[in-house]
Design a protein around this nucleic acid. Structure first.
Lengths: 203, 203
DNA sequence: GTCTATAGTGCGATAGAC
DNA sequence: GTCTATCGCACTATAGAC
């Protein structure tokens, strides 16, 4: 097998595939799952609905990939934020960093994050099960960080981990529905302030 | 005009209309907006899709009424909770009572509340605008209670009303996605605990 | 790889008998 | 008021020319 054809492994094809995914994330974030047609997505990236089938076997496969990428982004953002902490960081420091990172994704209105927050509970069951798996595979999650902080005694045992998680995740999801563009504060400042409130709630 | 025909003003017809609404709320809560067909709703209350058109002019009119009823329930629950307070209640007491009432609706998995929380951001624009109006017409809202508490100096001026509202509403919405049935605590106990956390966050 | 045409399908909505 | 039959439409998906 000659390598010359593989030297630049269909780079433009992969690029176009990525452009389709980006367009889909944008349209899904804007219109939701039900109201998003392949025609809309195609229009968003200057091609035709039928052409999408060259890159994705079905509409739901395209949607699935957008959602999985979103889960990956959330996971990566949290993992990076936690990894960037000094070694002596406390369990609460770690939780806080992860929460701030999650919030920031939603506040900056990352298309994948907003799309995920909007459509994740509208997906057909089959698709949802796959997403669930991906979410469980995330390297580090709010649930673990919370229980770690509780076990370390840094959070009062009176705080219920399940409820605290609902508080944090619910706020993150809701955040992406709110238009931060009307606010004069920077996304970082908003994320910081909200993180402070959340930590006060669970402390 | 004779009153005999109006004595019992098509009671059974109104009852059936209500049964349809209840069925729609149940199916919408379970399946979301996109996945809910008139066939499903009809099946849920033992009739036929076409028969629904005798009671509602269109699918979206049926959905709209479910959503408006949900908004009304949230509003009424909050208003009642606040009205039940003694006259000397503080602004924070009032906020707390309203929040607890909202949470309780979501935790008990009231079909209308769950349906609303699940579908409100999937609705066609036209429908959403009507819902927005209804939400603004609610007698008492979290936003007002929050600003009242801040103006009364009962909540530190450092707390941002907008962010606090996102925290509270987001948590309420998310709560209804969580299955409280797996929890041994009573809904009241859960609502109380979550309210405490929320108040700690904004305090 | 792209684009046109069209097959296939599911659902909202209506007609009309009863 | 109910139920059957069906229309019309929008959208997913495929066929096939280029």
């Amino acid at each position: 097998m000659k390598t010359s054809t593989a030297r630049r492994p269909r780079a433009s094809s992969l690029e176009k595939r990525q452009r389709i995914l980006d367009a889909a994330a944008r349209v899904l974030a804007r219109q939701g799952y039900a109201e998003t047609t392949l025609h809309d997505v195609a229009g968003e990236c200057g091609t035709y609905a039928a052409s999408l089938y060259y890159y994705f076997p079905s509409r739901d496969d395209l949607v699935k990939e957008v959602v999985l990428l979103a889960v990956g982004r959330f996971g990566a953002a949290m993992a990076e934020a936690v990894a960037a902490l000094p070694a002596q960081a406390t369990a609460i420091d770690r939780l806080k960093a992860a929460v701030r990172a999650m919030l920031l994704l939603s506040i900056t209105k990352d298309d994948y994050a907003v799309a995920y927050n909007r459509i994740f509970d509208q997906l057909p069951d089959a698709l949802n099960r796959e997403v669930e798996q991906a979410r469980n595979a995330v390297p580090i999650g709010v649930a673990e960080l919370l229980t770690a902080a509780i076990e370390a005694g840094e959070i009062g045992a009176g705080t219920d981990a399940k409820l605290a998680r609902i508080l944090i995740i619910g706020t993150t999801h809701w955040m992406s529905k709110w238009s931060a563009s009307k606010d004069q504060r920077s996304p970082h400042k908003i994320a910081e302030q909200m993180t402070e409130m959340l930590m006060r709630a669970v402390a």
